[in-house]
Design a protein around this nucleic acid. Structure first.
Lengths: 106, 106
DNA sequence: CCTATATATAACCAAATGGTTATATAATTG
DNA sequence: CAATTATATAACCATTTGGTTATATATAGG
């Protein structure tokens, strides 16, 4: 299973995804967009690949990265569902613990 | 600014939120729902409080935790917008790099 | 074919993370 | 008021994370 939270948990990785939204990019182009080193970017790209948020292919001595739109759709659904589920039925549970007697000390 | 990704980045914290969805809970009740120690749970609760995903109040020698529904709505909106933005306009950018000449070696 | 260059990888480091045990503090209750 | 109990906190630890520099590998091009 891909871990959306891991992939999106880092600001740089979120920015890489935003950059790739503009269009596919070589690693070199991505590196040039950030202030951190090539190996640091490479590690972020590896995480994004592991979590399948992006794909890549080799083109000569370049490696080109692209958003994995399909999986982003799934990620989107998963996170939306998670938070969405937290939000409904809140009215039902709001009544608990409003009175002292509601806390059972055992 | 609250960091939704930090808050949701840990499985235990996501489960705590799910538990709180059932209704407000004392720390003791939360601790009993997990296999890890009270201080470990406390740390997760502190993170969730820092990121404002939950609120708490003292009730005697108990501390009661609740979902911060309002902030969860904002988080929901933020993530929705972030991923949503990544997904639209993909068709526009798909044309790049499909031909060799698209890679400029400088 | 040699050089330049894009990428990959190794080795290292500091700080953050997620856990532990032990103990202190504060409030309830018999 | 003493004992119990819920919470808070301190000190510690192993692992992960996000970065670094240095170097190796592979391909393109003059």
């Amino acid at each position: 299973m891909t871990d959306v939270y891991r992939a999106l948990g880092d600001q740089t990785r979120r920015e890489i995804l935003q950059l790739l939204k503009e269009g596919n990019k070589t690693q070199k182009e991505i590196v040039e967009s950030f202030a951190i080193s090539q190996p640091a970017i490479k590690k972020h790209l590896t995480v994004l690949l592991e979590e399948k948020m992006i794909t890549s292919y080799v083109h000569g001595r370049f490696r080109v990265y692209s958003l994995n739109t399909e999986l982003l759709h799934e990620a989107y659904q998963e996170m939306l569902q998670y938070i969405g589920d937290l939000l409904d039925d809140q009215l039902v549970s709001l009544k608990k613990y409003v009175e002292e007697g509601d806390i059972r000390d055992d």
